Simulated assay, not measured.
Amino acid sequence: MTPALDERNRIRAAMERILAGAPERSNGALTVVALATEAGVPRNALTQRHLDLKAEFYDKVRARGETPDSEKRLRQQLLKLKELREDDKAEIARLQTDLEALVRVVHQLTVENRQLRTELATPDTRVRVLPTQPRPTD
């Protein structure tokens, strides 16, 4: 038996054990990693040499009405990313509101600063000399 044929036979046998719920070497997860471990082959045997067996495995998993573990993890990750995106949207909206308020404050302070500088630059004609009171004599 050629090594490739033996490898294919081991992968098919491992596929049947995992799908039957009786794994011998792996944790029985519905993943390519578990299938490769169960078959005693490197993972790249399924991802590079025997793509048809990998596809067949996932087809059988889906035919049973189950979702492969890798797909479940990806779906969970997708949900988490969507939640984070919504959180980011809310944060961006809050920051935009804060930015608008800060721009208004900076504008108001700029106007006030300009007024104060103008007042300092012009002599104040409102300054008056107050009369002094006579000193009491001893």
Rank of each mutant, 00 (worst) to 15 (best):
K89H: 11
H107Q: 13
A14F: 04
Q76T: 13
T67G: 00
Q96R: 15
A13C: 03
Q48K: 15
V129I: 15
L130I: 10
R8C: 08
L19T: 05
I11S: 02
T2A: 12
R49W: 06
L51G: 12
L102Q: 15
R43S: 05
P23H: 06
Q115K: 15
R12L: 10
V103W: 08
A101V: 06
L78H: 12
R43T: 11
T67N: 04
R12T: 11
R17V: 04
K89R: 15
R49F: 12
D52I: 03
K72W: 07
E100Y: 08
Y58S: 00
K60R: 15
V106C: 11
L51H: 09
P23M: 08
L95P: 01
L95C: 05
R62C: 01
R114A: 14
D59K: 13
V32R: 09
K82F: 05
L74M: 14
L84K: 15
E24Q: 15
L35T: 01
P42I: 02
R117F: 03
D88E: 11
T2F: 09
K54E: 09
R117L: 08
R10S: 04
A55N: 13
L116C: 07
E66I: 01
Q48H: 13
A45G: 03
P68I: 05
N27P: 05
A55P: 03
D88F: 12
T37L: 07
P42H: 07
L79K: 14
P136N: 12
H107W: 09
D98A: 11
E16L: 09
F57I: 04
P123E: 11
R85V: 08
E83P: 02
K54Y: 05
A14E: 04
K82C: 09
K89G: 01
A36Q: 01
T97L: 13
K89D: 10
V105C: 07
G21M: 04
L102T: 09
E112Q: 13
